[in-house]
Design a binder for these strands. Sequence first.
DNA 1: TTGTAAGCGTTATCAT
DNA 2: ATGATAACGCTTACAA
Lengths: 334, 334
Amino acid sequence: MVTIYDIAKHSGYSIATVSKALNNKGVSEKAKKKILASVKELGYTPNSSARTLATNKSWMIGVVFGETLGIGIAHPFFSEVIEAFKRHAELYGYDLLFVSRHMGLQQETYKHLLHRGVDGIIVIQAFGEDELSGVSQPIPTVYIDRPTNKPGSVHSDNKAGSLLAVKHFVENGHTKIAHIMGDPENFAGRERLNGFKEAMELHDLPIQENYIVNGGFYGYAGGREAMIRLLSLKERPTAVYVAGDEMAIAAMKVTKEWGLRVPEDISFIGFDDVKLAQHVDPPLTTIKQDKELIGQQSAILLLDKINNKDKTTAVDRKVIPVSLVKRESVYSLK
Amino acid sequence: MVTIYDIAKHSGYSIATVSKALNNKGVSEKAKKKILASVKELGYTPNSSARTLATNKSWMIGVVFGETLGIGIAHPFFSEVIEAFKRHAELYGYDLLFVSRHMGLQQETYKHLLHRGVDGIIVIQAFGEDELSGVSQPIPTVYIDRPTNKPGSVHSDNKAGSLLAVKHFVENGHTKIAHIMGDPENFAGRERLNGFKEAMELHDLPIQENYIVNGGFYGYAGGREAMIRLLSLKERPTAVYVAGDEMAIAAMKVTKEWGLRVPEDISFIGFDDVKLAQHVDPPLTTIKQDKELIGQQSAILLLDKINNKDKTTAVDRKVIPVSLVKRESVYSLK
DNA sequence: TTGTAAGCGTTATCAT
DNA sequence: ATGATAACGCTTACAA
């Protein structure tokens, strides 16, 4: 391995001068030129571990995925968000470190991150209320898709999404509206449910308990099962607001399998707007989460925290607007 | 920050003994006990940068995504593969470092990885023939989804997949079979195309040039456009073998938009078996790539290379079998 | 502007 | 079994 000592010897300067030249501190043009030439000739690459050790700055951001959803990176919503986050963090020179999960032991995961010396942490979809920190000098952290008190967080305006969905159903003449919810242990799931209830009240619609079913952790299987429960009711809903696109797609599928027409017999609105939503049949009307913006804003927030570790940040919780994307899974009763 | 010096002072031993105790080298039970107690009491966490500097081992694996497909992590096939890879690598104590892309400059990316001191590299979906290395002491590398001469590689048996697809069409009475290919700059795309041609010859079927259209980089848009070309033909095919599921789904969709029935008028077989394939209408018959196995085998191969850097590895290229998953997008003409 | 030397937190060598 | 001490490659006062 070629080190600054080699460069020093080859260029005729001291290692201090080499280091300064490499970091654009005060060195003469002449020295800089010579040193850079040696760097190129010898093929020198700085050693990040040594640099991190000396500067206490790793230029890495730790990424932690929630545990409950075993799926992690492969989830279409989260992967898009993290991709956007990555693109933004890269601009500022950060790499992303995906750390091992340590079997749900938050404490262990945090220690591991500490061990790695990451400059910041991004937590995606942590179920439960437990937070990652708990140590004296906490690492700047931003949570995506769930709010917290102390650290920063970025998430969609879930309630508003529910309002949008119910309103759209009502405008199309629906009154028998059901909701397939995400697991209530999950913040987004709770918020969407609350929003749904609020919206129903707002429109003077009754909230039937058996019209609210738990689809679990946003997967196909859960959506399917939940929909079967709804289909088994003596009085079926004419519209179903589903807390996640994948669940919605599964729900539409089983509905068709039962010989009902979508959307003529039952209408659907999903949540997320994953890519495939527009490619299913019928194309799914859904509440769009702005993954690009979520990823970007969480990067901005985290970088700000990293750079102003001491000062208190003004904005510490960002709520990203959602929007209704009208496609063809809602039938007008009027 | 609490270091081994603090532990040494607190426990009454030297830093050397502390280090040994922490690494299970020869220390007395008594010393170990005391030291571990101090560790717990002071909340000590080892510093990985220092350790890496001293041992020249980072316990990180660098992950590089192909450039052409700007999408990276968010691609359903690759995200599943990398997820499987991660699960396996974690078992052996490795974290994954997703490095920034450096604008397609392979040389720069490699230097960056060198700078980071990763123990191994996994490259996913590199288009073009350029390889990542080029330096004297290359870092152990495994390529997923493309073969290489020097380094190791893991990819599906693409040709066999094409054979399977065509055979299935033929068995169902189809003779007018078209192919929507992936971009030929891509290894998988070429192999699937070659396999398609071979299979057609095998079954004594003519290969019409206008029945082979380029869908580009496996996206919805490309699949849609390619299918429109096929639909515009005076004599349309009755069956289309599509080199990727997303393209296939887009192709089915536009076919329906044109007022044709799927599969009665045109049958489809895709490639990949992404999760949503079973949730579209009709459920897509497809060639399944074993993402779990690909991820796992590439991890095994890479770890083997890391641990036997000097020795030559016996197996250096793994071809993963594919299989036909029959669903409902193929119509029998018999 | 340039160089010397100390320090970052570990591991590893070599005595004791 | 334990402990000084050098070494890993870099940054950074502080001197010159």
